[in-house]
Design a protein around this nucleic acid. Structure first.
Lengths: 108, 108
DNA sequence: TTGTTTTATTGCAATATTACGATAAAGAAA
DNA sequence: TTTCTTTATCGTAATATTGCAATAAAACAA
């Protein structure tokens, strides 16, 4: 198969899964870490910072953009990428119940 | 290809990616949400709660277990699954820099 | 105009994931 | 013992992901 049965789950569950999936590759983790530590975020800098070919980095940027975790703004000749604060807030908020739960483990 | 170049990234980046990837499917999100809201966590209850075949749920449980996000303890005839608090704390801690960064967006 | 820079897209091969029926394995119950 | 219950694994088919070279597209520079 290889086809996720998204209809069986809630919109929220699918959205959280999409956020997590977008972060589920070390190159994309590296991109997010880079954007979390930089004021500037020109695409070319990201390509230089990630040890993969330009085409591959572009593809990873596209996936992060599709998930909404980053956004890109045209800046003359190049593109300025940055984190999307609202989506990250939603991501964080959706993880909260579990982060809270593990403070008082009850089982096993 | 289809083969992630893990050697190009740090151990931490790979670990965060592995956590996120494990959560990157709505069925696994549903399992985690279930375990975050339940004291009991018998495998059979999870299978009943997830709208997929037993074999498929078992496979998803295995992936969450491999990532370390859950653990299973044999309990007589069945298996008691629960969250692994330490791994979740690490997951949370690795996301903190980004969660902090989005409080003061600086770009775009 | 032509050329350069920057980023995205296409096409492809290799590998991974998803889903499920069938079956196996191991303990509980009879 | 046999049977039932519970969970894991195998085998398979369909689809998705990863990576890169080559190329396209779009804006700037000369």
């Amino acid at each position: 198969m290889g086809l996720t049965k998204t209809d069986n789950f809630t919109t929220e569950q699918n959205e959280l899964a999409a956020f997590a999936k977008a972060l589920g590759h070390p190159a994309r983790v590296a991109i997010i870490e880079y954007l979390s530590s930089q004021a500037s975020c020109i695409c070319g800098s990201i390509v230089d910072a990630i040890p993969l070919a330009q085409a591959t980095v572009s593809q990873h940027l596209k996936e992060l953009k599709n998930a909404g975790l980053i956004q890109g703004n045209i800046e003359g000749n190049s593109i300025c990428y940055c984190l999307n604060p609202e989506k990250w807030k939603k991501f964080k908020q959706m993880l909260e119940p579990t982060f809270t739960h593990i403070e008082q483990p009850v089982c096993c």
